[in-house]
Amino acid sequence: MAKLILDKMAMQRALTRITYEIVEKNKGVSNLVLIGIKTRGIFLAKRIADRLRQLENVDVPVGTLDITNYRDDVEHDSLSTDVKIANSEINFSIEGKRVILVDDVLYTGRTVRAALSAVMDIGRPSSINLAVLVDRGHRELPIRADFVGKNIPSSQKEKIKVYVSEIDDKDAVEIIK
């Protein structure tokens, strides 16, 4: 049984709010870069970038990060950084930048930890913040999102599914029991 938690409008508003909060917290958009975590985080990062362009008339760089090779269930110590980030696309320097990592759901925190490792492998940003559309709790690591679209308390048996219209034909967040 799927239950709709956020519809298109609510999802739009959550992203809008995150965007404003990013500007508020960073006192502007200078030095800001967005990195979306594959797959849906990328589209969310792009949407945040679109909003920043509308709002501040500035193009904030958007990169994409594939953390498959950083997951803790993958033997990765032997791989070189180049290989590990081969499927990522970050065509800009992150040295001294304020990085905003963007993902769809924050759950155990393992994905984010992997993403943090990957970002640190690539360069030395001045700060890293995390923006997620949904925070569903059940953290296994001490990781906290700086910008949250919606807190959705959930049981571990449930699944949270985020749909983005770019690849899913609709915008929605559903909870599946």
Binding site: Q12, T19, Y20, R51, L55
Partner: peptide, 16 residues
């Protein structure tokens, strides 16, 4: 004075 609900209002951040 404008009193009505027929004017399109643009939300700048989303361009909607």
């Amino acid at each position: 004075e404008h009193h009505g609900s027929n004017h399109p209002i643009r939300e700048i951040i989303t361009n909607e």
